[in-house]
Simulated scan of single mutants.
Amino acid sequence: MADNQNTEDLMKHCYENLIVIDVGANLTNKKYSRDLDSVMQRAKDAGVQKIMVPGTSVKSSKEALRLSRIYPDIIYSTAGIHPHDSKSIVEEPETWFDFEAIAQAPECVAIGPCGLDYQRDFSEPDVQKEIFEKQLRLACSLNKPVLIHERSAQDDVLEILKKYPNISHVVIRGFMGTTEEALKYLDMGYHISLTGYLCKDKSDTGVRKLLEDGTLPLDKLLVETDSPFMYPNTRASKLPQHVKTGITERSLLYLHRYCTFQRNEPCSLPAIVEMIASFMKKTPDEVALATAFTALKLFGLSQ
């Protein structure tokens, strides 16, 4: 765990620069295989202090752990079996023991993303549920937080999570649902992470409304880029003008010079934070400070 003095030092530093923590960048993706050092340097220069790299299979969880050892105290890994990949554990049950070993590593700070995805049928719902619960039991035994992936499956996800009240913290990753769905999660005390998806959200009941109405408390919010996905298109026609003008030139420079729809990077996170701040009618410093503090506290990231 970060001790209080280190945490306070980091927080003071946040007032000088917009310092943010990316709680989800898929840096094991092959799109970064040639220039990861440059990607990491740009993230650091942009103010991204720490990056959590999620594992979504046994293989990528192992690779995420490897990256955390190449970039110690900057990259932290998670160990997850994504719902889409659930059937692989059923087909090769011996791989679960490898997964447990990865999850136990101190650099691995959370279990997941795990959960249910009914939008696509890569794995049968019953198989998804079985492997989801297996990961929740592991999270309880290791006392590690859980990252939840949920698409069109909220009722079942909530029903299963209620069976595991001992989980230390639950984070709903890359939330893309409605305000009503968000409230169900918030009522359970869960945290919600947001991505550049808010540039795409055109609904009257979704992520933007959640921020504009103050429905999502700042201390329940985390931020992530979901790189290389979820490029924050700040030129989107539906993005309100006050949000566009709330993005600093410095953040736009990193975003437009280094990120594309084909490959987003962690250096886009300050722009996402500034957009969230505009929607919430708060300063970027407030959002950066609160989300960084929450990430440090929740995942025990050392400073």
Rank of each mutant, 00 (worst) to 15 (best):
K44D: 00
L255S: 02
A295Y: 11
L296F: 10
L194C: 07
M230A: 15
L158G: 05
Y197P: 02
A43M: 06
V53M: 12
F293C: 10
Y76D: 04
R263I: 01
G300R: 11
V53N: 10
I172P: 00
I81G: 02
L183V: 12
L198Q: 04
L183F: 00
S278M: 12
K134W: 01
K282R: 15
I102Q: 09
Y185V: 00
A103D: 11
V273G: 02
K30L: 04
R250D: 10
D126V: 15
V90M: 10
T225V: 08
R257W: 00
P72T: 04
D226G: 08
A105Q: 15
L27C: 03
C14F: 07
P270F: 06
A295L: 07
Y254N: 05
D156V: 10
Y185C: 10
Y254I: 05
A277H: 14
G246Q: 12
E249K: 14
S278C: 14
K200P: 00
M188D: 00
Q303S: 06
P165M: 06
D22Y: 05
K144S: 05
S268E: 02
F299T: 02
F279H: 14
I111F: 06
D226L: 09
T195G: 01
A2T: 15
F99Q: 04
L194Q: 06
H13F: 00
A46K: 08
Q154W: 06
T205W: 07
K281P: 00
K44I: 00
Y118H: 08
D45Q: 14
C14S: 12
Q154R: 11
K31S: 11
A110R: 14
P165N: 06
Y164L: 03
E92N: 15
P125C: 06
A105G: 08
D155M: 13
R173C: 03
L186E: 00
E63C: 02
D37Y: 07
V207R: 14
A295I: 11
L252K: 15
D3M: 11
I131F: 02
R120Y: 13
M40T: 12
G177Y: 08
Y164Q: 02
E181V: 11
L198A: 04
E159K: 15
F99H: 03
K144C: 03
S152I: 08
S68F: 05
I192T: 02
F279Q: 10
K31W: 05
I51D: 01
E180L: 14
R66N: 09
E181F: 09
P266D: 05
S86M: 07
I81D: 01
S141Q: 13
D156L: 10
L116N: 04
K44R: 12
I148G: 02
D204G: 13
A292K: 09
I276M: 12
Q49N: 11
D3S: 09
A79M: 12
G47T: 06
M1L: 07
L136F: 06
